[in-house]
Computed example of a mutant assay.
Amino acid sequence: MKVAIAGGTGLTGRHVGEVLGAAGHEVVVLARGRGVDLLTGAGLDAALEGVEVTVDVSNVTSMKREVAVGFFERAGRNLMAAAGRAGVRHHVALSIVGIDRVRTGYYQGKLRQEEIVRGGGVPWSVLRATQFHEFAGQLLERLPGPVAFVPRMRVQPIAVREVAEALVALAVGEPQGMAGDLAGPRVESLVDMARRVVAAGRARRRPVLPLWVPGPMGSGGLLPTGPGPRGVQTFDEWLAEGGAEGPGRDQGRGRALRSR
């Protein structure tokens, strides 16, 4: 099967491509470096020729609402329109658990992406997943100063590889609409995760102090609320295997998902 990956050069996209390739599928990467611009639509029609399934793991790093909504609006509309013209039979998009409860900033952009997928005219599946194991380290990288103030919140982190495997399982099957929420094996404190990343020497050594955040984000709003598939690799296992040394490492390879 010929499968196109939007955002295929990113952390998640690279894993999705590896899983698809290992299963014998033909992979097309949709990225600027491959001559495709999701924001303008340039190169999309040519790249999607003969493609049966599209997987969207494209991303924007800004937490600002207007930037995130603008990106997912333009990229989503261009991708869905091109997929329709190409006769794509199944579109799969990666989203985030809890964005309908934590409706701020970046999450508004992901909600807009889901709306576009639902109304795009191509049979679809959306997989909402929790934060990746990399989340705490990425947050520390963005925090300046001698002290890192990390939001006091609970997350249920999952290995990127396990997310990629779940996306591929959806992609090769029939469209499901909203799939069950995918989460890691256990709930963690984001503050404790950040402290463990620092203690392991994977981030700049400095004190990590909790920062109270109001509303749903601080009260478990990003945790799954119902049954669904759960990953196997814990945050501590990922950290011990060197997962925080940088993006793109192959952690969680070959691990099965288990359902709660």
Rank of each mutant, 00 (worst) to 15 (best):
F149E: 10
F149A: 15
F149V: 15
V150H: 00
V150G: 01
P151Q: 07
P151H: 10
R152S: 00
V155N: 01
V155D: 03
Q156E: 13
P157F: 11
P157I: 11
P157R: 07
A159W: 09
A159V: 06
V160H: 04
V160D: 05
V160G: 04
E162H: 02
E162M: 01
E162D: 05
E165Q: 03
E165R: 05
E165P: 01
A169F: 10
A169G: 08
A171L: 02
A171T: 03
A171C: 00
V172T: 13
G173K: 14
G173M: 13
E174K: 11
Q176M: 15
Q176F: 09
G177F: 10
G177V: 05
G177M: 00
G177I: 07
M178D: 00
M178W: 07
M178H: 01
A179M: 08
G180T: 08
G180H: 14
D181C: 10
D181F: 11
D181L: 09
L182A: 06
L182D: 07
L182H: 03
A183I: 06
G184A: 11
G184H: 12
P185S: 08
R186M: 14
V187C: 10
E188D: 05
E188K: 02
S189V: 09
S189E: 03
L190P: 01
V191E: 04
D192I: 12
D192M: 14
D192Y: 13
M193P: 03
M193L: 15
M193S: 03
V197F: 14
V197M: 12
V198H: 03
A199G: 10
A199Y: 15
A200W: 14
A200D: 14
A200R: 13
G201N: 13
R202G: 05
R202L: 08
R204H: 07
R205I: 15
R205N: 09
V208D: 06
V208N: 05
L209M: 11
P210S: 02
P210F: 07
L211G: 04
L211A: 06
W212S: 06
V213A: 04
V213I: 15
P214G: 06
P214M: 13
P214T: 10
P214C: 09
G215M: 09
G215F: 10
P216T: 01
P216N: 03
M217F: 08
M217Y: 04
M217E: 00
M217I: 12
G218F: 12
G220S: 05
G220Y: 05
G221E: 02
G221V: 08
L222V: 09
L222P: 03
L223C: 04
L223I: 01
P224Q: 14
T225S: 06
T225H: 09
T225G: 09
P227T: 11
G228N: 15
G228F: 15
P229N: 06
P229K: 11
P229G: 02
P229W: 12
R230I: 02
R230N: 01
R230H: 01
G231A: 09
G231Q: 06
G231Y: 11
Q233S: 10
F235S: 02
D236P: 13
E237S: 12
E237N: 12
E237R: 13
